[in-house]
Amino acid sequence: MPARIGVVTFPGSLDDRDAQRAVRLAGAEAVALWHGDADLRGVDAVVLPGGFSYGDYLRCGAIARFAAVMTTIVEQARQGLPVLGICNGFQVLCESHLLPGALTRNQHLHFVNRDQGLRVESTKTVWTSEYADGQEVVIPVKNGEGCFVADERTLDALEAEGRVVARYIGGNPNGSSRDIAGIANAAGNVVGLMPHPEHAIEDLTGPGTDGLTFFTSVLKSLVNA
């Protein structure tokens, strides 16, 4: 039986179908989860997709963290459930305090969408285990509020503990501290990533297939678990 990976739809989620496609192409079953339903339907991992949950009103991700589904996700993430937050999902993870820091308005104040170079800095997480250490990949970035900030001590700790998952190379698209594109929690089961790996899964529609490895990595870790 293939692994079952849930993709949450909040009101205003946009890349939810795209994340489901990535899950399917990686070889798992995609399970749609609804924001208002606390039941995770027994999924083995969860993706919080990109978009503008609740219109991004108040602050990106600030309302989504109070959704019924998030209560269960936060609880199970603390017990090891693999969770990947992409773009808006990353913002939700920070607002939920599963990850430190915050994502603020891009320094240049524009939304930016481009094919972005990244260096995978940690292969210790369940979402990046199949990458090579230091592997350089191209994955689209698209956000208006993707500038990762945290206090210096937190940034130092993230670096020291190997929790910086990916860094921007060839130009920082939003002004993120230390070119950080993604981070993990200490256990490595929760990852937040500003770029969109679900948009680099087919040669036909993306800059390549570099993003698919996020999804195959978690499948491998589920098999090995």
Partner: peptide, 25 residues
Amino acid sequence: VVEQYDRVVMGDTVLAWPEDAGVVR
């Protein structure tokens, strides 16, 4: 101009700017 637009959401964009025409699956 174009970098301020999401060109890839929905995952079916085959060609977009600066291509001659947009192509969508």
